[in-house]
Amino acid sequence: MANQQMKKTTQVQRKYQALAKGKEPPRPIVLNCIRAFVAGGAICVLGQGIMEAMVHWFDMEQDKASDPTVAILIFISVLLTSFGVYDKIAQWAGAGAAVPVTGFANSLCSSALEHRSEGLVLGVGGNMFKLAGSVIVFGVVAAFFIGILHHILGGGAH
C-alpha cells in the first residue's frame, strides 16, 4: 500500500516527504513509557482494590470476583468518557489508558457518542464497534484456532 502510494508521487513530493520526516519531532519514548506504566499500573491497582472489596464484602471467590470487577471498571470508564475526562487521561497516559479494559470501553463509548447524530440504529448501533471490532474479531479467530489446535493435540482445558 505504502509502496504503491510512493510510486504515484513525483520527485518533488518525495523530496518534501524526506524533508518533513527529518523535521518531525522525535517521540519522547522514555517519558511515554513511564506515563503508560504509572497510569496502567494505577488502573490495575484500582481493579485489584475493587476485586478485594468484592471478595471481602460479597463473599466472592477470587476468580469469580474478576467479572464484576471488569463490569465496574467498564462502567467507570463509560462515565468518564461521557464527561470527556477519559480522553484527557488518554492523552497523558497513551497506552496506559488504552491497554486496560477501560480503554476497550472507552473506544466503544466514544464511537457511540460520536455517531449519535446519525441516529440510534445506523449511528450508535452501526458504529459502536468501529474501533473495538478488530479486537473482538482477532481475539475470536485466535481463540478458535487455539481451540482446534488443542483438540488435535489432545490438550485438555486448564
Binding site: I29, N32, C33, R35, A36, F37, V38, A39, G40, G41, A42, I43, C44, V45, G47, G94, A95, G96, A98, V99, P100
Partner: peptide, 12 residues
C-alpha cells in the same frame, strides 16, 4: 501495579 504497568509499557 508492576505487571499491569509492564503490559501497558509493551503497548506503548
Amino acid at each position: 501495579f508492576l505487571v499491569g504497568g509492564a503490559i501497558c509499557v509493551i503497548g506503548q
